[in-house]
Simulated assay, not measured.
Amino acid sequence: MKASRDYMDDLLIRMAFHSCAIEGNTISLPQVGVIFLERMLPSGGKSVWEFYEVENHKRAFEYIEDLLAAELLLSLAEVKEIHSLLTDRLQHDRGQFKSQQNAIRGAEFKTASPFETPQLMEQWVDNTNYRLDLAVNENEYLEVLADTHIQFERIHPFSDGNGRTGRMILLFLSMKYLSDPVVIRKEWRGRYMEFLGEQDVSGLVGLFKESIAFERERIKEFGN
């Protein structure tokens, strides 16, 4: 993806805002910009927890930029590192698979057990790389990304931070294979959660296409 540094900074700000807001973080988009561009704490009595949730996206974003520059495939170690960076100062078990059963609020399905998780995640990484390698056009890539994103969230491999980690992995894979990022927007939260819960690949692909169309225009606005 050929994009200016200004666009990449803008992408980080928007990605951090939307991904955190989906999980209930109340820091606004302008405040996220202040955190990253001005290196200042947000005003308005925001919690340290919310600040770290946002601020941790910077190191995770820089990490996936390094992965893209090195043209590396996704691996289990990288999945764990992305989670570790996103949950730094927030979780004692950052970068480690869950040791106790967890659940998703409002979901009727059961997430993977701690015993099953390591093997299921190995299979998930291998399957994701294999299917993306076989894809030949944008629609096929999007279908794979949607399906594997759904499966990641259903495994729910970490004790917490699965949503933010899954969306950062999605950002990395979309930039790697499509040269354009996919960012799930806060205002799509309802549809996004519904598509995840119902395993609606085509519905999720529709959101991805909306995102890519927006990002392509955004790249043009910032110039190269």
Rank of each mutant, 00 (worst) to 15 (best):
C20G: 09
F158E: 05
I22P: 01
E65N: 14
M1G: 07
K110M: 12
L86W: 06
W49R: 15
A16I: 05
R5D: 08
I27A: 12
G95D: 03
L196P: 12
L196W: 11
Y141K: 08
I155H: 04
L85F: 10
F195I: 10
N56A: 04
S43T: 13
Q100V: 14
R105A: 11
F208P: 01
G24C: 02
M168A: 11
L170R: 08
E217M: 03
R14I: 11
M175G: 05
I27G: 13
S43G: 12
Q91R: 13
E38R: 07
F17W: 12
L196Q: 03
E187F: 14
E108R: 14
L73R: 13
E62L: 07
I22Q: 06
M15D: 14
I82N: 04
G197A: 08
L134P: 03
S113C: 02
L67N: 09
E122Y: 13
N25W: 04
F51D: 14
F222K: 06
T148R: 03
R191I: 03
N129I: 05
A103P: 14
M168T: 09
R14H: 09
K58R: 04
K220C: 12
I82D: 09
G24D: 07
L170T: 05
A112Y: 05
L29R: 02
D126A: 12
F51T: 08
T165V: 00
L85K: 13
N56M: 10
N139H: 08
P30K: 02
V182G: 04
E81K: 15
R94C: 09
Q100R: 13
E143T: 12
Q96K: 15
K98N: 11
S28A: 02
I82P: 13
G45V: 06
F51K: 02
S19Q: 01
P114V: 09
E210W: 07
E153P: 06
R189S: 06
G95V: 02
S211E: 08
